[in-house]
Nucleic acid binder design. Structure first.
Length: 480
RNA sequence: CUCCUCAUCGCUUAACUGGAUAAAGCAGGGCCCUCCUAAGGCCUAGCUCGAGGUUCGAGUCCUCGUGGGGAGACCA
């Protein structure tokens, strides 16, 4: 505490601060109005650059990557929203980020997709009696795919077992289109799609690159992942020569490192947790620094209905689709809800609760703050020039505090991105909105002496709100 | 059985990464529109799972326990 006091006295006079004081061993700095005013002046005239840093680092961000066997369900939405918010935050800061979707279009699931469509088609389109196997995909979209396939290729495609593969390959492209639509409805867009099946051509070369990292035993090829903290070595090529899923992932990650990104971020569902070590091991064997590969886990979403656990099952057909929720509550509300939660806590929510579109959703609170600003601006008789020509000086303490918080946005964006915790942004927006609402309630604006500068202050707040919301793929409302 | 992860008002979540009196929203009780949208503001009540430990200082770090979720495939 004594040290703090000595430090304070050594600061003396500095034009950036009006006051430096020692409180209980902490040092409080009070920024001067000149400083806030100049910073705001800059932000107002450089809205697009407000929040930008000087980085130009190239990053690859891979997320969602749900299997192309069905439309996205509500569980996928969390990772999608989380990833897209990070993407927007990073881009705002100036990072050169590529958003990539890894399409798992190889392996058993594709065979299963073909089989499922045939069975569904035989049952629903051709009215045949079918014997359902233990595992298969089902849902409304399966019927539609079967109908389309039958139209396009003839009914033979639904009954001829030798055409399953042809059917599956056609169907997975159709399903990808559905997925892309689901994402677009929530304002999520990808730059690149990498197909798993296209990677295996490169397998021999990549395997060679790993050198002693792989070995042959028992007729199979294994990776020495135990050398990198995995519990056991993993098979990468089966006895019959077919590569495993891991092989595809190894080629995929090698490709990323060869493409020269400086940093790689993958967002996986928490159920893939045990997979991290083996992928990192492969990256090391390939001669790359696995520290540049960052794997973020998005925890599971568990659903409740009327307080009871609600299990989604593709077989039972009670899957809650992302598109249904988007349609019901809107993309903005959905995104806000998911972005508000730390990604590493498992999230529980009630389906009915989610569907309630009322003021309990903070998105309305923030939009209302933005809309109030627009309304009051349009009600004022002052011209834009008059407002902008005023100086943000001599505001009362609440005004200064509001201005300060509005100018904090760049810090928040930086912090939210680098800590990978997007809820910091939603917290900030809630807090800024609360301060705006209170200020609005406490002080009359129109017709007062300080009208111009208070409106200018509001314009600044609106910029921060609008920019913050845009980081979440939400367009601020001018009217409620 | 082993490993990972989480646990904060009645409910859903925050807490500047080890710092100041733990904070919001819903739900509960009460108050405020002759005044720029009351989709707002203000009161009020209520919280760190348990036991140890490290530290000037712990919701945050360590150990053990309890309780949820996940993983332990030559499925993806």
């Amino acid at each position: 505490m004594i040290i703090a006091e000595e430090l304070v006295s050594s600061f003396g006079e500095h034009e950036m601060f009006t006051a430096v004081e020692s409180v209980k061993g902490y040092i409080n700095f009070r920024l001067s109005e000149q400083f806030l005013n100049e910073y705001a002046e800059w932000a107002l005239s450089h809205e697009d650059a407000f929040g930008r840093s000087d980085t130009t680092e190239k990053i690859l961000l891979e997320f969602v990557s749900a299997n192309p066997t069905g439309p996205l369900h509500i569980g996928h939405a969390r990772g999608a929203v989380y990833g897209d918010t990070l993407l927007r935050l990073g881009r705002r800061l100036g990072y050169d980020i590529t958003a990539e979707y890894y399409v798992n279009d190889a392996g058993n699931q594709i065979d299963l997709l073909g089989l499922s469509i045939q069975l569904e088609g035989q049952s629903a389109v051709l009215n045949m009696t079918v014997e359902w196997p233990e595992k298969y995909y089902r849902g409304e979209y399966m019927t539609l795919l079967a109908e389309d396939a039958s139209q396009k290729f003839g009914a033979d495609i639904l009954t001829n077992a030798s055409r399953q593969r042809e059917l599956a390959l056609w169907a997975k492209d159709r399903v990808m289109e559905l997925i892309i639509e689901d994402l677009a409805a929530a304002n999520i867009h990808f730059d690149t799609f990498v197909s798993e099946s296209s990677l295996y051509d490169d397998w021999d070369r990549v395997m060679g690159k790993m050198g002693d990292g792989v070995y042959e035993d028992d007729g199979k090829i294994w990776i020495r992942s135990t050398e990198h903290e995995d519990e056991k070595d993993r098979v990468v090529v089966r006895e019959d020569g077919r590569p495993t899923y891991l092989a595809g992932d190894i080629v995929y990650h090698n490709q990323k490192f060869e493409q020269g990104f400086e940093h790689y971020i993958n967002i996986w569902g928490a159920d893939h947790h045990g997979y991290i070590n083996r992928v990192k091991a492969a990256v090391e064997f390939l001669g790359h620094d696995s520290k540049r590969l960052e794997i973020l886990l998005s925890q599971m979403v568990s659903l409740l209905k009327d307080g009871e656990p609600y299990k989604m099952s593709k077989r039972a057909g009670n899957v809650i689709l992302m598109s249904d929720i988007v349609e019901e509550i809107g993309s903005d509300a959905l995104r806000f809800i998911f972005a508000s939660k730390k990604s590493d806590t498992s999230l529980e929510f009630d389906v009915e609760e989610l569907k309630k579109q009322d003021s309990s959703n903070p998105i309305y609170y923030i939009n209302y703050a933005h809309a109030r600003i627009q309304t009051i601006l349009s009600k004022s008789d002052l011209t834009e020039d008059t407002i902008m020509a005023s100086e943000l000086m001599g505001l009362n303490a609440d005004g200064d505090a509001l201005l300060f918080e509005a100018l904090l946005l760049p810090e928040v964006i930086d912090d939210a991105f680098h800590s990978r915790q997007v809820q910091k942004l939603t917290d900030y927006l809630k807090s800024l909105s609360a301060r705006l609402h209170k200020f609005y309630y406490d002080y009359r604006i129109i017709g007062t002496e300080d009208e111009a500068k208070m409106l200018k202050l509001f314009v600044m707040v609106a910029i921060s709100l609008r920019t913050g919301l845009s980081m979440m793929g939400i367009t601020a409302k001018d009217r409620m």
